[in-house]
């Protein structure tokens, strides 16, 4: 498992991002977004945040305020694959809560998800399970996205099969 402290950050790349956005509208938000995308496992390790704070002069408490407000930002390493369960109204009425509970249980993170954590990553760093308010694919409810590919009329059996394929390195 990749720990925050073990993640190597490319400071040169980070500095490029900081310089590129300097003085632009939404400077700090852009920097954080681009930084997360370039860092392995799609998250913002403390060392990266420290570096951004020092270089931009934005207080660390303000950075924390921003990254805890937007669910886009991750403070923990994300899994190799992301399973996104839609929790919009249409998907909810077609059983997305049960889907989330089942996949949560299978992955061993049901407690975190019940506690209202926005996402959960398996200890082996293979999968991250997260929720989304709506994909805009309500006619196909319930929908689940695996690595940005949206699957319609999802059932637990179908999802388990897909997860097994992805876990073995196959395409979903």
């Amino acid at each position: 498992m990749t720990k925050a402290t073990e993640t190597k950050i490319d400071l040169k790349k980070l500095d490029e991002i900081i310089i590129k956005n300097k003085g632009k509208q939404g400077e700090i938000l852009n920097i954080l977004e681009e930084a997360q995308k370039t860092i392995e496992h799609q998250f913002l390790p403390e060392a990266a945040l420290n570096h951004i704070a020092v270089q931009t002069g934005v207080p660390l408490s303000k950075i924390y305020n921003i990254i805890t407000f937007y669910s886009f930002f991750n403070l923990k390493p994300q899994g190799d694959h992301t399973i996104t369960v839609c929790r919009g109204t249409a998907c909810h009425t077609r059983g997305s809560k049960a889907l989330l509970d089942d996949i949560g249980m299978l992955m061993g993170g049901s407690k975190e998800l019940e506690d209202g954590e926005p996402s959960f990553t398996t200890p082996d760093n293979k999968f991250t399970i997260r929720t989304v308010a709506c994909f805009g694919q309500c006619a196909l409810a319930p929908v689940v996205a695996i690595d940005e590919v949206i699957h319609s009329h999802m059932t637990v059996t179908k999802l388990q099969k897909l997860v097994a394929i992805v876990a073995k390195g196959g395409k979903n």
């Binding site: 207080p59 408490s61 303000k62 924390y64 305020n65 805890t68 407000f69």
Partner: peptide
């Protein structure tokens, strides 16, 4: 000083 701020939603 900016030691504190609001976090989460």
């Amino acid at each position: 000083v900016h030691a504190i701020n609001v976090a989460n939603r």
